[in-house]
Design a protein around this nucleic acid. Structure first.
Length: 415
RNA sequence: GCGGUGGUAGCUCAGCUGGUAGAGCAGGGGACUGUGGAUCCCCGGGUCGCGGGUUCGAGUCCCGUCCACCGCCCCA
């Protein structure tokens, strides 16, 4: 045999039930977003590398070491998108979606690529479904975005805790950063190696370090919420009020920070205890559009990790019952069975025509194997009488009816 | 990128200190020629992840490599 070609590391096939689970997660989220009057935006899979460098942040791991980048034949630096928000912001600016003076609600869905070490629920090609609202600073939008994330989790019956925080704005965040940095420097010796490094690069991240010693230090660190300016404080307060009004359960986590540089004010994460991982995350990014060369545009959004949600979805909606049409006899019977099978499909009934030849007994074994719920034998006697045996494989009951009666019976089952 | 565990039949796995590859389940056929999940009988199937080394001889020991999974980092 020739050498077998395998999938690229971190990439995989989704087959049958896995594929159905994928569709279920995506369709459920899409449904909720459509109901909230979000418009779909279908984005390119590749963008110029600098788009991500400028939006996500030069110094982040995603940009520094996790992007799939390459040069095209024209020597342009291109990257497979590692996330969706940057592309949405770029499209918003490029297509002047701000021109009509209203805010825009967009959602996207598709593959994202990060060159990380693969693990369960973490692949190099993974999928996100994300929503973005561009052009409003109204805290109603923050509350609604979080509510949608909550609705998706509830619809999928996934348990997760919603944690929220505010990262402040250009006015108040620097003051907080200053205070935090000063505090952390006083405790530098007690911090773990990683955190000593973070001190320079991204001190906010020390707050959610898992090392025990660091957590103790983090516990007594100044809280961002104590440093928020009036505007940010009011905004944060309003978001929480609206969430309560909506009955969305959440916990405040003053140490919640996000890994992407573009966030401001509201940030949130939906954390699954079962996975020990975040399944949906998002927040405000009021400066991103402007930093990418657009007009000043407050905005916010979230991204849901499809693979991670799939790991938590225990039950899929049932497929409609399956009917196996079994030809029995010769060419005439095969041809009739072929036509009758398509008659059933015309009516929306999930139908398999057996290509198996041989004993009737084997046909029934085949019916079980493929998970059929009903069988219809099409043989010489049936064609002569115009009556066909519809057998329920679960109850083993069989009724003989004219074909069009069978169609009616099955149609009510397929609802 | 770092640390750990593991890769043997379609699946789950066994294979002790090196001596020509096994079980259960699944699959195919028959007992049973127009009605299935039971039972019995028979059968097929493997470059032991890949490459190299040690050895008379390697699934087993050594080195390398790939892949999966777990933890870290990071993140959805």
């Amino acid at each position: 045999m020739a050498e077998k070609v395998k999938t690229v590391r971190g990439f995989r096939d989704l087959i049958g039930e896995e594929a159905r689970k994928y569709r279920y997660v995506v369709d459920t989220a899409r449904d909720i977003l459509e109901r909230n009057n979000f418009e779909e935006i279908i984005l390119p899979t590749v963008e110029y590398t600098k788009l991500f460098a400028r939006s996500i942040g030069e110094a982040t791991d995603i940009v520094e070491k996790e992007m799939f980048t390459f040069q095209d034949k024209g020597g342009r630096d291109i990257a497979l998108r590692p996330e969706g928000t940057a592309g949405v912001a770029r499209a918003y600016i490029e297509n002047k979606l701000y021109a009509d003076g209203t805010y825009k609600k967009l959602y996207y869905e598709g593959s994202m690529f990060r060159h990380e070490r693969p693990q369960k629920g973490r692949y190099r090609e993974f999928h996100q479904i994300g929503a973005e609202v561009l052009g409003t600073s109204n805290p109603l939008a923050d509350a609604e975005i979080i509510k949608i994330a909550d609705d998706i989790l509830k619809a999928l019956k996934v348990d997760a805790t919603i944690e929220i925080n505010s990262l402040g704005c250009k006015k108040c965040r620097p003051k907080y950063r200053e205070a935090l940095l000063q505090y952390l420097k006083e405790h530098k010796e007690e911090l773990c190696e990683d955190c000593q490094r973070r001190l320079e690069r991204n001190p906010l991240r020390i707050l959610d370090c898992k090392v025990e010693g660091c957590q103790l230090i983090a516990k007594n660190a100044p809280k961002i919420t104590d440093y928020l300016c009036e505007e940010c404080k009011t905004h944060h307060q309003k978001v929480k009020e609206y969430l309560k009004a909506l009955g969305v359960e959440f916990v405040e986590n003053p140490y919640l920070v996000r890994g992407l540089d573009y966030y401001s004010k509201t940030v949130f994460e939906c954390v699954s205890e079962e996975l020990g991982k975040t399944v949906i995350a998002g927040g405000r990014y009021d400066y991103l559009v402007e930093e990418l060369g657009g007009p000043p545009t407050p905005a916010l959004g979230f991204a849901a990790g499809v693979e991670r949600l799939m790991l938590l979805v225990k039950e899929l909606p049932k497929r409609p019952p399956l009917v196996l049409v079994i030809p029995f006899g010769g060419d005439r019977e095969r041809e009739e069975a072929l036509k009758l099978a398509h008659r059933l499909r015309e009516e929306g009934i999930r139908t398999e025509l057996s290509y198996r030849e041989g004993k009737i007994r084997k046909q029934f074994e085949f019916a079980n194997k493929i998970g059929a719920d009903y069988t219809i034998v099409v043989g010489e006697n049936e064609l002569k009488q115009g009556l066909f045996p519809l057998k329920n494989l679960h109850t083993r009951e069989e009724i003989k009816l004219p074909f069009e009666e069978i169609v009616k019976v099955l149609k009510t089952q397929s609802g």
